[in-house]
């Protein structure tokens, strides 16, 4: 589905990612783990074209490497950014409309997304910055799903959420597997990763050090200790 080859990214003179190789497969959840500052968020931003980047980004055979960020999204890669980054003064409906406009999706997708997050249906006219933290995260995910993405990038979506909300997000991610969406999840919480991950990519020193299957990782405490420090 999405293949990264020899990817590097930088902020000005500071190179954050070096020679990253990664594949996200359709119907699978690929988790990215690593210590703070290792480049996980930069990797998400590099895939979207939001930072200066080099290397090859191939989606279903289409080379996206030279595309500007807004074109990347139109090819079907959706981002749920760290900290949600909703369009705060806009209503819930307007945030969803922005997502629908990206790939010209209509009412049917809108309804499908609201079926996943019924609480948002009751708040369509509410200004999004007045939602609770959990509802804001639901909206951030719903806005991304309005693209009907081929690849969904989630950057620490459970950060600061209560357990019931984390469980709801987990159910949505598991449900997406059956639709063939390739999910890339940056996550610090080991338990959350183990519940959904098909494969885990461990990052260190600005690159993907190794990719291992999610099954069986629960017993691999030394690996988590080495890459995540838990």
């Amino acid at each position: 589905m999405l293949r990264l080859e020899g990817v590097s990214a930088s902020y000005g003179a500071v190179t954050v990612l070096r020679d990253v190789v990664l594949e996200a497969r359709g119907g699978e959840v690929t988790c990215i783990m690593g210590r703070n500052g290792v480049g996980k968020t930069t990797l998400m931003r590099a895939i979207m074209g939001l930072v200066a980047r080099q290397g090859r980004f191939v989606l279903d055979g289409d080379d996206l490497s030279a595309l500007p960020a807004h074109e990347v999204a139109r090819h079907g890669i959706a981002l749920v950014p760290q900290g949600r980054r909703l369009f705060g003064p806009l209503t819930v409906a307007e945030n969803l409309e922005i997502g629908l406009m990206t790939r010209h999706r209509g009412r049917a997708v809108h309804e499908q997304v609201l079926d996943l997050f019924p609480r948002l249906r009751e708040r369509l006219g509410q200004v999004s910055q007045t939602l609770s933290g959990g509802e804001q995260q639901m909206l951030a995910i719903a806005r991304a799903l309005c693209l009907e993405p081929k690849v969904l990038l989630l950057d620490e979506p459970t950060e600061g959420l209560q357990p019931s909300m984390i469980a709801a997000i987990r159910e949505v991610l598991l449900g997406l597997k059956s639709t063939g969406v390739a999910t890339v999840l940056v996550e610090q919480r080991v338990d959350a990763v183990l519940q959904v991950a098909d494969r885990v990519a461990f990052m260190g020193h600005g690159t993907v050090a190794e990719v291992v299957p999610g099954a069986g990782l629960r017993a691999d405490a030394p690996r988590f200790a080495a890459y995540v420090g838990v």
């Binding site: 979207m48 074209g49 939001l50 500007p68 960020a69 807004h70 074109e71 999204a73 139109r74 981002l79 950014p81 980054r85 369009f87 705060g88 003064p89 806009l90 922005i98 997502g99 406009m101 990206t102 790939r103 806005r143 693209l147």
Partner: peptide, 13 residues
């Protein structure tokens, strides 16, 4: 509101 996120949602800023 946020030109970076706008770009990530297909808006040609």
């Amino acid at each position: 509101v946020d030109r970076v996120t706008a770009r990530a949602f297909g808006i040609n800023v």
